[in-house]
Design a protein around this nucleic acid. Structure first.
Ligand SMILES: [Zn+2]
Ligand SMILES: [Zn+2]
Ligand SMILES: [Zn+2]
Ligand SMILES: [Zn+2]
Lengths: 134, 134
DNA sequence: GCAATTGATGTAATAACATTACATTTCAAG
DNA sequence: CTTGAAATGTAATGTTATTACATCAATTGC
């Protein structure tokens, strides 16, 4: 929600993700930032941790990779702090579409309530082929 | 759907997963099968690949771990070849609840159709606290 | 029976992803 | 200036997964 000032390393990592067409692994990010003085994985993981906290970056669990958040500030319902982010990932070209669906959110919340399960984090990822690659 | 005869290694891996209360990593399975002659990760991964193909085992992407399928043969709508399996995973005790929800399935399918995205595999995982641990 | 094929297995090495531990630097209070 | 918190640098290690190659077992066709 608030977009805090980023440190140097956080800015570098965020910029790499923002410019990328597809999700990047931490080690791919590391390689892209060698010329900027990055030498060790931890520099990437630390920056990613903060960016994830701030909701500026998402982790794709089925890919072990990261993407910049695609939502405009205050899109739809005021950033997506309210619900679950979902992803469609093209296995051919790597393109990632970020979306959310209230209906799905509510449905999963209802299920959780019925089970007395307290959700902390949700992962919804659809792997397949995008329109261009289908 | 068809439950084919398993090989020796596949049976060993499946039995370990079936007896486990929670999801197991491939290397944890390997350790549990040392006494049965397992020496290398590949023996586990190969067995898991087949079990995954047969739908007898599921992979939890957010955990890099595996669980035996919890569905009875022909439960609800004839095994879950028809839809997406979802998981609620307790971060405290590791218990995993496997479920599916047609409403969610249809909703995600509708979204995909609208985007001309061809889904191949879906991942739905809810991390949180189970009733006992909440 | 016996070669040819296929699927399963054994083993070693390596690749890919992530964290722990500890030293140093930066920088904003106080 | 001092001090404490956050960020950074670096090395080592831990965890997850795959590649490569050799061998073994069951099946098929002759
Ligand atoms: Zn987002
Ligand atoms: Zn594509
Ligand atoms: Zn199942
Ligand atoms: Zn629990």
């Amino acid at each position: 929600m608030t977009s805090p000032a980023l440190t140097k390393n956080q800015t570098l990592v965020f910029d790499v993700l923002t410019k990328s067409e597809s999700a990047l692994s931490a080690y791919t990010i590391l390689d892209k930032l060698r010329d900027n003085g990055f030498r060790a994985p931890l520099q990437v993981y630390r920056a990613l941790d903060k960016l994830l906290e701030h909701g500026m970056v998402h982790r794709l669990e089925s890919l072990n990779a990261f993407v910049a958040c695609a939502h405009q500030q205050s899109a739809c319902c005021g950033s997506h702090g309210h619900g679950t982010v979902a992803f469609a990932i093209c296995d051919s070209c790597g393109h990632v579409i970020e979306f959310h669906d209230h209906e799905v959110d509510h449905r999963l919340d209802d299920w959780a309530r019925g089970q007395r399960f307290k959700p902390e984090k949700r992962t919804i990822e659809i792997r397949g082929l995008c329109e261009s690659c289908a």
